[in-house]
Simulated assay, not measured.
Amino acid sequence: MDETHRDRDDEGRARNARPRDGLGRPLPYGAEGVGRQPEGVVRSPEETLREAQRLLDAGMPFHAHEVFEDAWKSGPEEDRELWRAMAQLAVGLTHSARGNAVGGARLLRRGAGVLGAYRTLEPYGIGIDGLIHWARELAGRVERGAGGGLDAAAEAPRLCPLRP
């Protein structure tokens, strides 16, 4: 295969130009996939949460993870672990929906563990206790065999509790 088909930039880094499905799995070249999230977008925390929730609700947790990744890479140092944990939850849901019970449960539990440090803070209106409960409960179900046919949209968490 020549260089033009290797999805590499001029420095040889992977570009990941292959089309992907809603769970981020690569599709054959030429297949119609789901549009990728643009990389390196700087959003406010509120915009990050709104976009990630939209993607989660649409059954695209892989894409939501990319939104959280942008926040963790571009945001202030004091928020990096928060956004990294949120990305881990989204990737945990992704792996669980793909049928990877071990990886999915591990990431869900890891993200929930990190979020424990934010319990009393409720940063940006994020329902931390609800997310921790959701992640641990889903991890348990996935480990008991609920993973393979898991519907990512139906399992999507509410990031921020509804306000009256």
Results as ranks from 00 to 15, higher is better:
Leu108Ala: 07
Gly147Leu: 06
Gln88Trp: 07
Gly12Val: 09
Ala152Tyr: 06
Pro61Arg: 05
Tyr124Ser: 02
Gln53Met: 13
Pro38His: 08
Gly75Ser: 11
Leu82Met: 05
Ser44Arg: 01
Asp9Phe: 00
Ala14Asn: 02
Asp21Gln: 10
Tyr124Val: 10
Trp134Leu: 01
Gly113Leu: 02
Ala146Arg: 05
Gly130Ile: 07
Gly111Trp: 06
Leu159Gln: 07
Ala146Gln: 11
Glu155Val: 12
Arg158Ala: 00
Thr4Arg: 06
Leu49Ala: 06
Thr94Glu: 13
Arg15Phe: 00
Gln53Asp: 13
Glu81Val: 13
Glu3His: 01
Met86Asp: 03
Arg54Trp: 06
Asp7Lys: 03
His5Leu: 15
Arg141Asp: 12
Pro61Glu: 14
Glu77Trp: 10
Gly24Ala: 07
Tyr124His: 14
Ile132Leu: 12
Ala64Gly: 10
Ala156Arg: 02
Arg98Gly: 04
Ala90His: 08
Ala58Gly: 08
His63Glu: 13
Glu77Ala: 15
Ala153Phe: 02
Ala154Gln: 10
Arg84Gln: 15
Gly130Ser: 09
Arg136Ala: 08
Arg13Ala: 11
Val142Gly: 01
Trp72Cys: 00
Glu11Ser: 06
Ile128Lys: 01
Cys160Ser: 10
Ala105Arg: 03
Phe62Asn: 14
Val102Gln: 13
Ala87Glu: 10
Gly103Val: 04
Pro45Met: 09
Ala112Trp: 02
Met86Ala: 02
Arg98Leu: 13
Gly35Phe: 06
Leu82Val: 11
Trp83Gly: 07
Arg98Cys: 03
Trp72Glu: 05
Ala135Lys: 01
Val42Pro: 01
Arg163Trp: 14
Pro157Met: 14
Pro123Lys: 11
Glu78Asp: 15
Gly99Met: 10
Arg144Ser: 14
Leu23Asp: 11
Arg84Glu: 15
Gly111Thr: 14
Glu66Pro: 02
Leu138Ser: 07
Cys160Glu: 14
Arg18Cys: 03
Glu81Gly: 04
Gln37Glu: 15
Glu51Leu: 14
Leu93Thr: 11
Trp72Ala: 00
Thr94Gln: 10
Arg50Phe: 02
Gly75Cys: 08
Asp21Ser: 12
Leu150Tyr: 04
Gly111Ser: 14
Val114Gly: 00
Ile132Asn: 06
Pro45Arg: 04
His5Arg: 14
Gly104Thr: 13
Lys73Asp: 04
Ser44Lys: 03
Gly35Val: 08
Ala101Ile: 12
Ala97Tyr: 01
Asp129Pro: 05
Trp83Glu: 11
Glu47Phe: 05
Thr120Ser: 05
Leu93Asp: 11
Leu131Gly: 10
Ala58Arg: 02
Ala105Thr: 08
Trp83Pro: 03
Pro157Thr: 13
Arg163His: 15
Arg106Lys: 04
Leu55Ile: 13
Trp134Ile: 00
Leu107Phe: 09
Gly149Lys: 02
Asp10Tyr: 01
Trp72Phe: 00
Leu82Arg: 03
Arg106Met: 12
Glu78His: 14
Trp134Asn: 00
Ala90Glu: 10
